[in-house]
Design a binder for these strands. Structure first.
Length: 611
RNA sequence: GCAUCCGUAGCUCAGCUGGAUAGAGCACUCGCCUUCUAAGCGAAUGGUCGCAGGUUCGAAUCCUGCCGGAUGCGCCA
């Protein structure tokens, strides 16, 4: 009993931290909501239903044969004291709905009210807004809370590998989506530039390394040194060298803390090599941060803050160590000062949170970190709450499962990793060989080598980012180079291809905003389906922001791409029966291109003009 | 032992706060370039939704138990 209550409340708290309200931005759904509201008020005068509640009931119909939008009457049954099918029947017959200006046809199917919208309304309101750009200006999220997302916490002195990309792609996409929806968002990173891994790396570099430091790619080389250091230290465990090694590492850490000595100088020099590597990856991913919080920056401050908390009686001493007893909350004991007087990971995270609250005045604090840290963050958030930070309730650990290799987890400690740039370069090579190089010889298309290189880069970028953001955060990704190099089916390049096709089409057929269109001419199912799909874009993004998920946007863009490709195959544009139809279809294609470009941009994926 | 996550087609995954016939991709089979980019389109094949109960008008979805897998649980980060 107590257990289930506890788990409920912790789930509720997590929801609380996430919660945000989406606005009623969908023009057509809003119009339908008003119609339904009017009909309900007329038919059931005693009922008192808010428009907002009605608006939320609308959803896409399961398939385009049944309608464009559905309204399920189940939620109304209690308030209206009638069965859902009866309600649906009554509403369908009311003229506020059946004669609504945007409704082509409405029918009650069992408990559902299914709407077909007028092509003219879809065209003028949806396609028109998209092509003018107005559609992308809607604010999606209510309120003016300040949000912060911390993502990408790579360690210096280790290799950046494909596992880090999941975090980076996810964070990048969420930041972009939130900003698109009108959220005041600050993006920060927290690289680990201090601690034992650094000491180990420097220890090996100074004492054992015989290789020349390379001229280029020093960061990757340094990562290999770290792996060697670890291997050596593990090999010497249990030998008479173990004690000596430990002493040497402690001495190095002491120098780093004291900010002087040969190892401190070496740290400063080598850190730069790693940071250059990080920046290379961030440039590749087109990621920027508003603030870099260095681990070394909070190191000393975190310890003095913990001491201060202890003196104030907020922490207790136990077994010689200092921390907070969270056993009442089933979170054990959160250790903050070790018996040797130094701090820990949690100590730094408490200080970092304090800094975020004070420096930025944030209301919502999101951490994108892998799911192995769940317990750690539960402890840290609880500590913050008990210290007295109101914002602790709005701290949220956005978990994701690890990227693994077919034979198990990736570990730079063991060195069984795929460096990020290996994947990128192999993919670019493959893209050129399989697709782009042929355009070099083709005198008609006449691509330059530079165009080939740039396009290959964009496509590899799209493939990796889509691959990393399309699966549920809770599901682990097993990385296989062979699989990732397959670029057909549901992939980033499929979406980019749709965009490139449209761009070419608009160019060849001279798309412009002044084309004379007649939306009523679009009378095939595929054309109206495409229009309805386009209408849903903002809804999908808003839902993604509310849930902090990228997966649904990926799925949406893929569905949109599929619809477009079917449309492209079935409906001739340049050779349509008449000019107005050609122009109308071209406007629809252009709108699809705009949504695709914007959607890809939210995932951080570039949209090539040709490929 | 306790906690979190996962278990849906041969493989990789969708299925949103329970709701209308469980959907894609890959693989396999068949069709489509004298028409706007075939990195494409169309068709066919493939599922007792891990198992067992419960709640409900209705459960892949919520609850409980079990099975199988991953991860975490005080001096690492």
């Amino acid at each position: 009993m107590a257990n289930s209550n506890d788990s409920n409340s912790s789930k509720d708290k997590a929801k609380d931290a996430l919660s945000c309200n989406t606005l009623m931005f969908n023009t057509l759904v809003k119009t339908l909501t008003q119609a339904v509201s009017e009909a309900v008020a007329d038919l059931y005068p005693q009922a008192n239903l808010e428009e907002r509640a009605l608006y939320d009931i609308f959803s896409p119909a399961p398939n385009f044969k049944m309608g464009h939008l559905s309204f399920a009457c189940f939620p109304l049954a209690k308030a209206l004291r009638q069965g859902p099918p009866q309600i649906a029947g009554a509403l369908a017959g009311h003229k506020a709905i059946s004669e609504c200006a945007i409704v082509e046809k409405v029918s009650a199917q069992g408990p559902y009210l299914n709407f077909f919208l007028k092509r003219e309304s879809l065209g003028n309101i949806v396609i028109g807004e998209i092509n003018s750009g107005e559609y992308f200006e809607h604010r999606l999220i209510e309120g003016d809370e300040k949000w912060m997302i911390e993502y990408s916490q790579p360690n210096t002195h280790k290799v950046l590998h494909v596992g880090h990309m999941r975090n980076l792609c996810l964070g990048n996409a969420l930041v972009r989506m939130c900003r698109f929806g009108g959220v005041n968002m600050t993006a920060v990173t927290y690289p680990g530039d201090s601690g034992t891994h650094v000491a180990k790396c420097l220890w090996y570099l100074k004492k054992y390394n015989k290789e020349e430091v390379p001229e280029v790619e020093k960061g990757a080389w340094l990562g290999e040194i770290y792996t060697k250091a670890n291997t050596l230290l593990e090999d010497e465990l249990g030998t008479d060298k173990e004690e000596q090694n430990r002493k040497e590492l402690t001495e190095i850490l002491k120098q780093l803390h004291g900010e002087s000595g040969e190892y401190y100088d070496l740290w400063q020099e080598t850190k730069k090599w790693s940071v250059d590597l990080m920046k290379e990856a961030y440039d590749w991913a087109d990621v920027t941060f508003d603030r870099w919080f260095w681990e070394s920056e909070v190191d000393a401050a975190s310890l003095s803050y913990a001491k201060e908390l202890y003196e104030k009686g907020k922490l207790v001493k136990d077994d010689g160590a200092i921390g907070m007893d969270l056993s009442d909350d089933k979170l054990g004991f959160c250790l903050l000062i070790k018996t040797d007087g130094t701090g820990l990971y949690a100590t730094k995270d408490v200080e970092l949170a304090r800094k975020k609250f004070e420096e930025f005045g944030i209301d919502k604090n999101i951490y994108i970190v892998d799911d192995r840290q769940a317990y750690h963050f539960n402890q840290v958030f609880k500590v913050l709450e008990k210290i007295g930070f109101e914002q602790a309730k709005k701290c949220y650990h956005l978990k994701y499962a690890m990227v693994e290799l077919p034979d198990g987890g990736m570990s730079s400690r063991k060195g069984n990793i795929v460096p990020l740039m290996d994947l990128v370069s192999q993919m670019e090579k493959q893209i050129k060989e399989q697709f782009l190089n042929k355009y070099l010889e083709d005198s008609e298309s006449g691509w330059t080598q530079k165009e080939v290189d740039e396009t290959a880069k964009m496509i590899a970028n799209g493939a990796i980012k889509y691959g990393m953001t399309r699966v549920d955060n809770n599901r682990k990704i097993v990385f296989s180079m062979e699989e990732w190099l397959k670029l057909d089916g549901e992939t980033g390049p499929y979406l980019q291809y749709v965009h490139a096709r449209i761009a070419r089409l608009c160019q060849k057929l001279h798309y412009n905003e002044d084309l004379i269109v007649d939306w009523d001419l679009l009378n095939t199912e595929i054309e109206t389906s495409l229009m309805v799909k386009l209408m849903e874009f903002n809804d999908v993004v808003a839902a993604g922001i509310a849930k902090l998920q990228t997966m649904h946007l990926c799925g949406y863009l893929y569905d949109l791409g599929k619809l477009f490709n079917s449309f492209y195959a079935e409906c001739p544009i340049g050779k349509a029966e008449n000019e107005t139809l050609a122009h109308t279809r071209l406007a629809l294609a252009h709108a699809t291109g705009e949504v695709m470009r914007e959607g890809l941009a939210l995932l951080g994926i570039p949209a090539p003009e040709k490929m």
